[in-house]
């Protein structure tokens, strides 16, 4: 199991106005599955390629178990990569595809055969070794691609949006498979995705990137409960931001003043972050009253677009509480679930 460290990783293509990746610092513990999450073009694939050696960084270093691997060419780094397209070699059958890396390492034929068959079982495609690689479904191809990347027991396993080309139902099944195999093989893995739901389901930790920079790194919960900026909160589905002022641990807004123990002491202009779920129906003295503008039925929950003091907010309540358009909801904010992010005009 390998520890991965990225130190000040920067990639600036000559002629480009901005670097694609800037000062990326990250440590992945051995055996962890980390998701690189971010919108298209934010540089996540670029970082991945620098880890694999397919791209050389302009500045910075990549360390495996505290040793720099920058000078090691990609084919010797023992970092295997699975791309968005399965890229099975068309002139080889399934078994030959999976065994490719082992053949390049000049391992013995019978050993290769055993490993290949073990891998096929792991990805639930037992007996497929002799099949032609052009006669498979998308999901099967991607599973073979996974098998091919893992059979060589890489130090680091990289996945670049491996599921985005698959149907939704297949995606969920594959996510579980990836998770299961990764845990079984205990290989340090990085998975790039632009789907935040996927990242949350798959990863031990998430590294969120915008515009080539690492924004926040932590367990999935932290992005919901403790996003660092408004933009991060928005990326994770929060649309309720109330302008306010923080003094000490109290945030004063037009919706009221809230003393939040989860905040650090500070004096600053903030947005009070109210997740749609951070409310409950209440009639008490501190409750707010808003008119329902529209609602979206989501099965187990209902999302209401409400009008509060002239602004629109979204709240989510259980389906049992069915309000109609025009109704007035009386509710209060759940203090423990609130958060504050710096106020920034630009975001």
């Amino acid at each position: 199991m390998t520890k991965l460290q990225l130190i000040n990783l920067t990639k600036h293509y000559s002629g480009a106005p901005e670097p694609s990746v800037k000062d990326f610092n990250l440590t992945v513990e051995p055996g962890e599955l980390v998701a690189f999450l971010g919108p298209s073009g934010c540089g996540k694939t670029t970082v991945l390629k620098m880890i694999s050696g397919l791209l050389l960084p302009t500045e910075g270093d990549v360390l495996f178990n505290d040793e720099s691997v920058i000078e090691i060419p990609p084919e010797k780094r023992e970092v295997s990569m699975v791309f968005q397209k399965p890229l099975l070699f068309p002139h080889m059958n399934v078994g030959e595809n999976i065994g490719f890396g082992l053949r390049m390492r000049k391992q013995k034929k019978d050993e290769i055969k055993v490993k290949v068959n073990n891998m096929l079982e792991l990805v639930r495609l037992k007996g497929y070794a002799d099949r032609k690689s052009t006669e498979l479904s998308g999901g099967q191809e991607q599973r073979i691609s996974l098998a091919r990347g893992l059979v060589i027991e890489p130090r680091i396993f990289l996945l670049d949006e491996p599921l985005s080309a698959l149907d939704a139902s297949l995606r969920i099944e594959m996510r579980e498979l990836i998770r299961k195999i990764q845990r079984h093989m205990k290989v340090t893995t990085i998975c790039v995705t632009h789907d935040q739901e996927e990242a949350v389901m798959l990863a031990d930790k998430i590294a969120l990137m915008f515009d080539g920079k690492l924004q926040q790194y932590g367990v999935p919960e932290v992005f919901y409960e403790r996003p660092k900026t408004k933009r991060i909160a928005e990326f994770f589905g929060c649309t309720n931001f109330v302008k306010g002022t923080q003094k000490g641990r109290t945030v004063a807004t037009k919706l009221g003043a809230y003393t939040l123990d989860q905040l650090d002491d500070d004096n600053r202009e903030v947005y009070l972050v109210v997740r749609p779920e951070a409310v409950e129906v209440s009639d008490g003295a501190d409750s707010l009253k808003a008119k329902v503008k529209s609602r979206i039925f989501m099965g187990t929950h209902v999302r209401y677009i409400i009008d509060l003091f002239g602004k629109e907010y979204q709240i989510t309540l259980e389906s049992a509480t069915l309000y109609k358009e025009g109704d007035i909801i009386s509710f209060r904010l759940l203090k423990e679930r609130l958060w504050a992010v710096p106020y920034d005009d630009n975001i």
């Binding site: 084919e75 295997s80 990569m81 397209k85 070699f89 490719f100 890396g101 390492r105 990347g149 060589i152």
Partner: peptide, 16 residues
């Protein structure tokens, strides 16, 4: 090019 990248990541050197 894409197959080359894939092969590289699986450990093949330039001749391979």
């Amino acid at each position: 090019l894409v197959y080359e990248e894939q092969a590289t990541s699986l450990g093949a050197n330039s001749w391979q």
